[in-house]
Design a binder for these strands. Structure first.
Lengths: 114, 114
DNA sequence: CGGTATCCTAGTCGATACTG
DNA sequence: CAGTATCGACTAGGATACCG
C-alpha cells in the first residue's frame, strides 16, 4: 500500500506511523513479535512495543503470552482492528488512482502554477 | 467529522493535523484566508499558511490573489483535492460506527485484560 | 524470545510580534 | 486583509544497550 510512498507524502494515515502496516501484517492471521519486526524493516523493538501496546489499549488487537521456554507471544487483530481495513482500503484505492498525480504536482513546483 | 475527537485518538488522518479540516471548510466552495481561520479555531496564521502552501504544492487546492485594496485571496479545492473526500468519508463512517467502541476500550484500560 | 531503559534528533505545532 | 519572522514547547520516532 503506502510502502513505496515517502512518509511525508502519505496523504492518509491510520493512527501513527506504524499502525496501518501492523494491521496489514496481521491481516492474514496472528503473528509473533519478531514476525512483525522483520517485515517492518527498521522498526526498533521500543517503537514496535509502543505501537502494539497502544493498539491493544484501543482494542485493535490482543496480546497472548504463552508460558513457554523460550517465551512465545502472539498478536492478533480483534474485530474492531479488522474493521479498520475498510477505510484503509479506501485510502489505498485513492493512492492507486491519484498518488502519482499528487507526486507529479509536487515535482512540478517551480512557479509555473497557472 | 473528527471535530469532537481527541487529537491522539483520531484513528485516521489525512495529511497533517489540519489538512482534512481545511478540505472540509472548502468543500462547499472557495474561501478566503480569514474565512478559513475562523472555523479552524486556534490555528495560527503561520500554520494555516504552511498547510495551505503544502496543499497547493501537492495540487490539492489553488490560491487566487485578486489585486485589490484591501487584498483578497481565495482558496479553492482542485479536482484532486476534492477526490480526497472519498477516503475521508470512509474514515468518517468508520468513526461513526466504531469510535465509541475504541474509546470505551481505551477507558477500560486497567489490567483486566484476561 | 520478547521485550526495557536511556538518550537523542527532527519535525510539527503554537505564541507572539510585526508588515505590505 | 493576508500574511511573514522568530522563538520555543512538545513529541513521535530512532540508536543503542541491556534484561528476565
Amino acid at each position: 500500500m503506502f510502502y513505496g510512498c515517502p512518509p511525508t507524502a502519505a496523504p492518509i494515515r491510520v493512527g501513527d506511523k506504524w499502525t496501518a502496516k501492523i494491521i496489514r501484517c496481521l491481516e492474514l492471521g496472528p503473528r509473533r513479535f519478531t514476525e512483525l519486526q522483520r517485515p517492518l524493516r527498521g522498526i526498533t523493538p521500543k517503537v514496535l512495543t509502543e505501537s502494539l501496546r497502544a493498539m491493544e489499549r484501543d482494542g485493535l488487537l490482543t496480546r497472548t503470552a504463552y508460558d513457554e521456554i523460550p517465551p512465545r507471544v502472539e498478536y492478533e487483530l480483534t474485530t474492531l482492528g479488522r474493521s479498520l481495513l475498510e477505510p484503509m482500503n479506501a485510502g489505498c484505492e485513492w493512492s492507486r488512482k491519484h498518488l502519482a498525480e499528487l507526486m507529479r504536482a509536487r515535482e512540478t513546483w517551480h512557479a509555473g502554477t497557472s
